[in-house]
Write a protein that binds this DNA or RNA. Structure first.
Length: 696
RNA sequence: GGGCCAGUAGCUCAGUUGGUUAGAGCAGGGGACUCAUAAUCCCUUUGUCGCGGGUUCGAGUCCUGCCUGGCCUACCA
């Protein structure tokens, strides 16, 4: 196929919020997008990958206040951490900006001016809960209270988790601000709204044209927000969009509405433009060539959770501001791990940083590529599948081709002309367009399958040609060189196809063969007559134990974080140390079946006595009511005198297998806490418990 | 309650506008080889295509009802 004319493509991934670390779920998107961008560049197009940190909003302010530092400090730290994670996964942005930049403020003002001029803005008074102590209006999620419907306490501000009732936070009975713990009061405030309904016809046309959105997304929008005028139900009205927040708010103040700030979702997508502007300034380009030019494509990659913003508000804003509309919004699903939502307690909520300590990032890039289709299905990262897939495909099949042939031609280099390979190279070259098409459609899953089919033809070739046999016969040196020339060229071809997914391996291949894999067209012409470097391992197999270490570390991080949060939020007034939990971490999870095996009973200490020659033990006679009695030797001599114990109720493990001790048979255990020695604290039931009662 | 999407071998998924006998990879079983990171190669087992109706000469594919799952959204769709 002849090379297409050069396209001008601007690509964005959603802006990560500056309030948390990058995790495996985020990476689906940044990797998906990075692959697409690298593919376009490899095809010779001008393509730029634009992103930024999303920095504004209440959550950042709250965190800054809690940590007693400025918002700017919080977002600066987050930006550094995010960028480090992206570099670790080979995600190469052409510009990574911030929504808290002068460029963004400038662009917001410009776009706002256009929206105002178009008559889309109106003012409305709304009632909102106000935290008097903190001096802020409270977003729904910062209020809890009793559900007005079913009276369940501690429900969030927008809907009840018990009965499902929805309400406004002002309807809550006994509302409490989660920021200060005080009771908020209702205040009215003026908010600015954008009347999206005015853009209804445009949005229907744009979204339903079939070019810009995946069909299921277009259907969703039609059914949910836009309606169908042909239908008897008719069109639906788009709701006004509340885009201002009263001070104090961390963001940009609205120039013609002092004391009000743009809501974070207004300035966040404009961050795409602002970040492009930074890139243009650094590269001598004009912003208008990208955002006001029908000749340039704009592709947004986002998760399905933010569909609404990117397919209604954002095109509406762009249209009104007379800027280029998105060529396509590519929407992907969520990541599940081992078939379920990522879970902190199960250790599957893995941060990018934690992953990088234990597992090769190339493996995750390849795995995601092999799972991603062009649609918004969720993808699952099953650790077993991950290990098997990456090792089999990448290491055993692809890298193996080089690993089994390169060293035979280290001395001679590649043959001067490309030998007869029975059409293998041509065959693989011929499906290059099909692979390219799959990449273009974001159907990486299909691209990977096609590429692996080539690898599955290349390995049998090597098997048949048996270079290890040829090597033993000096007369067959030329044949040996030819066979390896073929194997390495097939390998190189695969690596060109895979380069967008595994850039690190492509780079190693380039070094081995002394030729950069920087052009898709190179997959059509074999490399001949060039030297071959010394082969070095390109990629280690993934070991399940590395995954386990990653999970363990994640779990540990979460426990520590949970402990910290808990002690801050709830236990701070008691000032309890977390040392006991650190000294003795939680045991493995047990089931209710496991628990009921242990029969705990209330028992009365009938008699407590010293044991001759015993340093630590007291001999207890425990009564379970009637004449049920047990003799137990307990290691509590340093902590209790016998007379302190006699008569009191304790809790004992009553069905513990009896154990013969030096001083006699012990028929159970008394429950107690503490590290030992003098610090032993025997458990007591509350008043009213009767000996013999089971503890459930 | 409504909407979008999905349900194909043990697992992950292909199956184009309906067209012979439903495929691949992995896993499982058997064998070969030893250059390669116990990698590779050959052979091989496995299906009520979620369930029931309908359209058709012909349905995994189209229509319809139901079931299950994911997501979205609700006294709006």
């Amino acid at each position: 196929m002849s090379k297409l004319s050069t396209r001008k493509i601007l690509v964005t991934a959603a802006l990560p919020y500056a309030n948390g670390p990058i995790h495996l779920g985020h990476l689906v998107e940044y990797i998906q997008t990075d692959i697409w961008v690298r593919f376009q560049k490899l095809r010779g197009h001008q393509c730029i990958y634009i992103c930024a940190d999303d920095t504004h909003g209440t959550a950042i302010s709250i965190r800054a206040q809690r940590e007693n530092r400025s918002e700017e400090e919080v977002i600066a730290e987050s930006q550094i951490a995010h960028q480090k994670d992206f570099v670790g996964f080979g995600i190469e942005f052409d510009n990574y900006g911030s929504t808290n930049s002068v460029e963004n403020k400038q662009q917001c003002e410009r776009i706002w001016g256009k929206i105002r001029a178009a008559g889309l803005v109106k003012e409305k008074e709304i009632e909102q809960l106000f935290d008097v102590e903190k001096g802020v209006f409270l977003a729904d999620r910062f209020v809890t209270g009793t559900c007005p419907e079913c009276k369940t306490p501690n429900q969030p501000g927008d809907n009840c988790s018990k009965c499902g009732e929805t309400y406004s936070p002002a309807d809550l009975i006994d509302p409490v601000s989660t920021l200060s713990g005080t009771k908020p009061e209702i205040r009215t405030a003026m908010h600015l709204f954008i009347e999206l309904e005015q853009l209804h016809d445009f949005l229907r046309m744009w979204s339903q044209s079939g070019e810009h959105l995946q069909p299921e997304v277009a259907n969703y929008l039609k059914g949910h927000f836009l309606g169908d005028p042909a239908d008897k139900e008719g069109a639906k009205k788009l709701r006004d969009w509340d885009i201002s927040r009263p001070a104090p708010y961390f963001g940009f103040e609205i120039p013609d509405s002092p004391g009000n700030y743009w809501y974070v979702w207004f300035d966040a997508p404009i961050g795409y433009i602002a970040s492009t502007q930074q890139w243009c300034q650094a590269n001598g380009e004009q912003l208008s060539d990208w955002w006001e030019n029908d000749g340039a494509e704009i592709h947004h990659f986002i998760g399905k959770d933010i569909t609404y913003f990117h397919t209604l508000f954002w095109p509406g804003m762009l249209k009104t501001a007379e800027l280029s509309l998105p060529t396509k919004v590519h929407i992907h699903g969520f990541l599940t791990v081992n078939g379920e939502k990522m879970s902190k307690s199960k250790g599957t909520f893995v941060k990018a940083e934690t992953y990088l300590k234990h597992v090769n990032p190339t493996a995750l890039r390849y795995f995601y590529a092999s799972k991603l289709g062009g649609r918004l299905d969720d993808i699952d990262l099953s650790f077993d599948e991950f290990v098997a897939k990456v090792n089999t495909d990448l290491v055993n099949k692809v890298v193996n081709l080089a690993s089994r042939s390169a060293k035979f031609v280290k001395e001679t280099g590649l043959s001067a002309t490309y030998p007869d390979d029975g059409g293998l190279f041509q065959q693989a070259a011929a499906i290059g367009d099909e692979i390219a098409d799959a990449y273009e459609q974001c159907d990486y899953n299909r691209a990977m399958r096609l590429i692996l089919e080539c690898a599955d033809r290349a390995n049998p070739f090597v098997e048949d040609a048996a270079p290890w046999v040829l090597k033993k016969d000096p007369d067959k040196a030329e044949e040996l060189q030819n066979v390896c020339t073929i194997a390495l060229n097939l390998f190189r071809q695969l690596m060109i196809y895979l380069a967008p997914v595994v850039p690190e391996l492509a780079e190693m291949t380039a070094q081995l063969l002394g030729d950069r894999l920087d052009d898709w067209e190179k997959s059509k012409t074999p490399l001949v007559g060039t030297p071959v470097g010394k082969f070095k391992h390109m990629m280690k197999r993934i070991e399940p134990k590395d995954i386990q270490k990653m999970v363990d570390e994640t779990q540990k991080e979460q426990e520590e974080a949970a402990a910290a949060t808990e002690s801050n939020a709830l236990a701070s007034k008691y000032n309890d140390s977390d040392q006991p939990m650190v000294d003795e971490p939680l045991a493995e999870e047990c089931t209710i079946e496991d628990f009921v095996k242990v029969d705990l009973r209330v028992a009365r200490v009938l008699k407590a006595e010293h044991v001759e020659d015993a340093r630590k033990l007291l001999k207890l006679t425990l009564g379970l009511g009637g004449n049920h009695q047990r003799t137990v030797f307990a290691g509590i001599k340093a902590a209790y005198k016998p007379e302190e114990l006699e008569g009191r109720l304790v809790v004992m493990v009553a069905n513990l297998k009896p154990r013969k001790m030096k001083f006699g048979l012990s028929e159970g255990m008394v429950c107690a806490s503490g590290p030992g020695g003098e610090e032993v604290f025997v458990l007591s039931p509350d008043q009213g418990a009767q000996p013999g009662q089971r503890v459930h």
